[in-house]
Amino acid sequence: MSATLSESIDRLDAAAESRLDSLLESPGDVGILDEHAKRELRRAILTAVCVPGYQVPFGSREMPVARGWGSGGLQITLALVGADDVVKVIDQGDDEGVNAVNLRRLVTETTGATETTEVDEATVVQTRHRIPEDELDEHQTLVLQVPVPEPLRGVERNIAELGRMHAEADYSRMWVSLYEDKVRNGVITKSTGYPCLVGGRYVIATTPIPRWDVPRLHHAPFLSLFGAGRERKIYAIPPDTDVEPLTFDDVPFEVERTAGARCALCGATEAYLIEVPPSVGGAEDGRWICSDTSWCRRRRATDGDA
């Protein structure tokens, strides 16, 4: 490499560094999102809360994580939390998943919020694929990372037509897809992202949570915020809102359940269990463990005390 080239690279480096320093020092703009971005996000969130289930568009920013890796949930969390907040992040119910750990670090280090793995300590719980087994209360907010916010995407691809269907609450084609599923398979096979009617008006995708968690959204005491970074949409379920899974009158909604399955670690049967290879987590005597790791750990600790 020629001396001139390496000198100019050094110069550029120095310039970038000093610019970064000045950005970090500028008052008001602390963290990843600037104040304008936070304001826009908060407005979108307020709109979403006012019109439960309606997908509010927002200007999704570039995040230090790739789109599809929780950038929507991350932006909501960053717009919500301050130094007083306590943040829990889970991935598939697990606080120690690589993605969960990285997002949690990112949030706490750039906002001054503190981190936790305990639900009852958290003010904000950011999640991919689960609602914690513990009941959240009205002081807590659940932030969900959403890959596909549009529940009707499977039956219609034209965006203008999708807008019309939501505007007129014309969901008959969603019902047809459930009908066809039942005809073809004998049961409704749709698992995660089960379509639900929110507040008797909008159908939402409850992605990415499993069916197990769907009934827990109905009249929940807490606020749920759904963020889709790639699709640039935010929607919400305010506290005490009707959330009804779409199902036929004579075909009851069922949650996932495997007869005889119990957690190999804590013995729970009434929790969302995941199947694992026998060697994982010392689960020699069974192939099932709780998906919510912190809940499972606490149950074992309490058993030990008793």
């Binding site: 019902w175 047809v176 009908y179 005809v183 009158d249």
Partner: peptide, 18 residues
């Protein structure tokens, strides 16, 4: 399906009984 095309109209009219 043929049945699904009819189900579309029936559900549009509010029928929710499979």
């Amino acid at each position: 399906t043929a049945g699904g095309n009819i189900a579309d109209r029936l559900t549009a009219a509010g029928c929710r009984h499979f």
